[in-house]
Protein backbone atom coordinates (compact mmCIF):
# COMPACT_ATOMS: atom_id res chain seq x y z
CA UNK A 1 0.00 0.00 0.00
CA UNK A 2 1.39 3.40 -1.00
CA UNK A 3 0.01 5.59 1.76
CA UNK A 4 1.91 8.63 0.60
CA UNK A 5 -0.10 9.14 -2.58
CA UNK A 6 -3.41 7.65 -1.46
CA UNK A 7 -6.52 9.80 -1.33
CA UNK A 8 -7.96 7.56 1.37
CA UNK A 9 -8.01 8.60 5.00
CA UNK A 10 -6.15 6.31 7.43
CA UNK A 11 -9.49 5.09 8.78
CA UNK A 12 -10.62 4.16 5.26
CA UNK A 13 -7.37 2.28 4.71
CA UNK A 14 -7.88 0.29 7.88
CA UNK A 15 -11.54 -0.64 7.39
CA UNK A 16 -11.02 -1.47 3.71
CA UNK A 17 -14.75 -1.64 3.10
CA UNK A 18 -14.84 0.16 -0.26
CA UNK A 19 -17.59 2.35 -1.67
CA UNK A 20 -20.43 -0.05 -0.83
CA UNK A 21 -19.26 -0.15 2.84
CA UNK A 22 -19.60 -3.92 2.86
CA UNK A 23 -16.09 -4.98 1.86
CA UNK A 24 -15.81 -8.58 0.73
CA UNK A 25 -18.83 -9.75 2.77
CA UNK A 26 -20.96 -10.51 -0.31
CA UNK A 27 -18.17 -12.45 -2.03
CA UNK A 28 -17.30 -14.36 1.12
CA UNK A 29 -20.92 -15.33 1.91
CA UNK A 30 -21.39 -16.42 -1.71
CA UNK A 31 -18.41 -18.77 -1.43
CA UNK A 32 -19.32 -20.07 2.03
CA UNK A 33 -22.91 -20.86 1.06
CA UNK A 34 -21.62 -22.43 -2.17
CA UNK A 35 -19.44 -24.74 -0.10
CA UNK A 36 -22.31 -25.65 2.28
CA UNK A 37 -24.64 -26.14 -0.69
CA UNK A 38 -22.53 -28.91 -2.23
CA UNK A 39 -23.14 -31.66 0.39
CA UNK A 40 -26.58 -30.34 1.36
CA UNK A 41 -27.85 -30.34 -2.24
CA UNK A 42 -26.57 -33.89 -2.70
CA UNK A 43 -28.59 -34.80 0.40
CA UNK A 44 -31.69 -33.00 -0.89
CA UNK A 45 -31.46 -34.71 -4.30
CA UNK A 46 -31.15 -38.01 -2.44
CA UNK A 47 -34.23 -37.15 -0.36
CA UNK A 48 -36.25 -36.35 -3.48
CA UNK A 49 -35.11 -39.47 -5.34
CA UNK A 50 -35.95 -41.70 -2.41
CA UNK A 51 -39.50 -40.23 -2.28
CA UNK A 52 -40.36 -40.25 -5.98
CA UNK A 53 -43.27 -42.67 -5.75
CA UNK A 54 -43.98 -42.01 -2.08
CA UNK A 55 -47.28 -41.07 -0.52
CA UNK A 56 -47.71 -37.94 1.57
CA UNK A 57 -47.59 -40.04 4.74
CA UNK A 58 -44.23 -41.52 3.73
CA UNK A 59 -42.72 -38.08 3.06
CA UNK A 60 -43.94 -36.91 6.46
CA UNK A 61 -42.62 -40.03 8.18
CA UNK A 62 -39.13 -39.37 6.77
CA UNK A 63 -39.22 -35.80 8.01
CA UNK A 64 -40.04 -37.00 11.52
CA UNK A 65 -36.40 -37.97 11.77
CA UNK A 66 -34.56 -34.95 13.22
CA UNK A 67 -31.42 -35.42 11.10
CA UNK A 68 -33.46 -35.43 7.89
CA UNK A 69 -35.54 -32.41 8.88
CA UNK A 70 -32.54 -30.39 10.08
CA UNK A 71 -30.45 -31.18 6.98
CA UNK A 72 -33.38 -30.28 4.70
CA UNK A 73 -33.91 -27.02 6.61
CA UNK A 74 -30.24 -26.06 6.59
CA UNK A 75 -29.94 -27.02 2.92
CA UNK A 76 -32.88 -24.88 1.91
CA UNK A 77 -31.69 -21.90 3.97
CA UNK A 78 -28.15 -22.12 2.58
CA UNK A 79 -29.42 -22.46 -1.00
CA UNK A 80 -31.94 -19.64 -0.56
CA UNK A 81 -29.32 -17.28 0.89
CA UNK A 82 -26.94 -18.18 -1.98
CA UNK A 83 -29.82 -17.49 -4.39
CA UNK A 84 -30.52 -14.11 -2.79
CA UNK A 85 -26.85 -13.10 -3.18
CA UNK A 86 -26.66 -14.30 -6.78
CA UNK A 87 -29.89 -12.67 -7.94
CA UNK A 88 -28.81 -9.46 -6.20
CA UNK A 89 -25.59 -9.48 -8.24
CA UNK A 90 -27.52 -10.03 -11.47
CA UNK A 91 -29.90 -7.16 -10.63
CA UNK A 92 -27.03 -4.83 -9.71
CA UNK A 93 -25.32 -5.64 -13.01
CA UNK A 94 -28.26 -5.29 -15.38
CA UNK A 95 -30.96 -3.10 -13.78
CA UNK A 96 -29.84 0.51 -13.84
CA UNK A 97 -32.94 2.69 -13.31
CA UNK A 98 -32.80 4.06 -9.75
CA UNK A 99 -36.42 3.13 -8.96
CA UNK A 100 -36.55 -0.17 -10.84
CA UNK A 101 -33.25 -1.21 -9.29
CA UNK A 102 -34.41 -0.62 -5.71
CA UNK A 103 -37.75 -2.27 -6.52
CA UNK A 104 -36.02 -5.31 -8.03
CA UNK A 105 -33.68 -5.62 -5.04
CA UNK A 106 -36.62 -5.44 -2.63
CA UNK A 107 -38.55 -7.98 -4.69
CA UNK A 108 -35.50 -10.25 -4.53
CA UNK A 109 -35.56 -10.06 -0.72
CA UNK A 110 -39.30 -10.74 -0.64
CA UNK A 111 -38.87 -13.78 -2.91
CA UNK A 112 -36.07 -15.21 -0.77
CA UNK A 113 -38.03 -14.57 2.45
CA UNK A 114 -41.16 -16.14 0.97
CA UNK A 115 -39.31 -19.30 -0.07
CA UNK A 116 -37.59 -19.57 3.32
CA UNK A 117 -40.83 -18.93 5.20
CA UNK A 118 -42.80 -21.54 3.26
CA UNK A 119 -40.02 -24.11 3.40
CA UNK A 120 -39.52 -23.73 7.16
CA UNK A 121 -43.29 -23.82 7.79
CA UNK A 122 -43.62 -27.04 5.80
CA UNK A 123 -40.58 -28.70 7.38
CA UNK A 124 -41.51 -27.72 10.95
CA UNK A 125 -45.10 -28.83 10.53
CA UNK A 126 -44.16 -32.21 9.08
CA UNK A 127 -41.22 -32.73 11.43
CA UNK A 128 -43.31 -32.11 14.55
CA UNK A 129 -46.04 -34.22 12.99
CA UNK A 130 -49.09 -32.10 13.75
Amino acid sequence: MNNGSSMKTPLKQVTGLGSAHSGTAHFWQQRLTALFNLPLVVFMIGFIISHLGSSRAEVQASLHHPVVAVLMGLGLLSVIWHMKLGLQMVIEDYVHGPVTKIAALLLNLVYAALLAGLALYALLKMSFGV
Binding site: M44, I48, R56, V59, Q60, M72, L76, L115, L118, A119, Y121, A122, L123, K125, M126
Partner: peptide
Protein backbone atom coordinates in the same frame (compact mmCIF):
# COMPACT_ATOMS: atom_id res chain seq x y z
CA UNK B 1 -40.11 -22.57 -5.94
CA UNK B 2 -41.07 -26.04 -7.26
CA UNK B 3 -39.23 -27.77 -4.40
CA UNK B 4 -40.83 -25.47 -1.82
CA UNK B 5 -44.22 -25.98 -3.53
CA UNK B 6 -43.84 -29.76 -3.22
CA UNK B 7 -42.82 -29.54 0.47
CA UNK B 8 -45.63 -27.12 1.28
CA UNK B 9 -48.16 -29.36 -0.46
CA UNK B 10 -46.93 -32.32 1.58
CA UNK B 11 -47.47 -30.25 4.73
Amino acid sequence: LLLVWWLTAAA
